[in-house]
Computed example of a mutant assay.
Amino acid sequence: VEKSLNIERHATDTLPQRIHHIYSTLLTRDEAAWGMPSDEGQTYAERQQGLIIELARRLGESISPEAAITDTTELLRRARRWQRENTGDAEGQKQVRTLADAVQRLQRVGPWASTNPRITQEEIAEHLKRIRNDYCRGGLRDTMNRFIPQPAGPRCAYIRVPEALGLHEYAGSIEDAVAELHRRMQEAITSTVAEIEAGRGFIFYPNPFYHR
């Protein structure tokens, strides 16, 4: 991924640190492209949010100068409507589409990325897939990576069967039976996860996006 994006790889970085470095470099490029200052003293989330707010402001001015739209979801909805209603404005179409695409792309790394001090192998794989989908569009390998699932590592299935449920005990109360079935299934899942975690079956890394 670094090679495809012309990003220098630091030899001592862990895999999560490499992911963070890729995102930070791409964010710096976005900031430069939109004429925004890059404050390296801020966290990734703070810089990202600042850029989203500024691009959303510009997008709002492009489609509705007289109305301040603070909700990003509503803003993007109005941007799509503006594009449908102003097909004759080629320059405006390009500007609105570029701004809307940038806002949506930046939003795909949401607050969830920085809330947990640990990051799992699966989450790292999701980050990689997101980077490939959003930024790597050069060749056949990039195209294949977007459409063919890439496992994060060897897979292992843990199968548990919850205690059987006697429906005769819930005559006339199917809702109670379903609720009890859900409880037993959740109990089986929770105990299995705890068992795997105790045996270090999950792979965790320190999360470089995390901030208090």
Rank of each mutant, 00 (worst) to 15 (best):
V1G: 03
K3V: 09
S4L: 09
E8C: 04
R9D: 06
T14I: 09
I22G: 00
T28R: 06
D30Q: 07
D30C: 11
D30K: 12
W34N: 15
M36Q: 15
M36F: 09
S38P: 00
E40D: 12
G41R: 13
R47S: 01
E54T: 02
R57L: 07
R58W: 04
G60C: 11
P65D: 05
A67S: 11
A68M: 12
D71N: 14
T72G: 03
R78F: 08
R80S: 13
Q95C: 09
T98A: 15
A100K: 07
A100C: 10
A100T: 10
D101G: 01
A102E: 12
V103H: 05
V103D: 07
Q104G: 08
Q104I: 01
L106S: 02
G110I: 03
W112T: 04
T115A: 14
T120L: 08
E122M: 07
E126G: 03
K129G: 04
R130H: 06
D134F: 09
D134M: 11
M144K: 00
I148V: 12
I148H: 01
P149R: 04
P151V: 12
P154K: 10
R155K: 15
A157V: 15
A157L: 15
I159C: 10
I159W: 12
R160K: 13
V161T: 14
P162H: 06
E163K: 12
E163I: 08
L165G: 03
G166M: 02
L167E: 15
E175P: 04
D176Y: 05
D176Q: 13
A177I: 13
V178G: 03
A179M: 11
E187P: 01
I189W: 02
T190P: 00
T190K: 13
S191Y: 05
T192I: 09
T192N: 10
V193N: 04
A194Y: 09
E195N: 05
I196N: 08
E197M: 11
A198L: 14
F202T: 06
F202P: 11
Y205R: 02
P206H: 07
N207S: 04
P208N: 03
P208W: 00
P208R: 10
F209L: 09
H211I: 11
H211S: 14
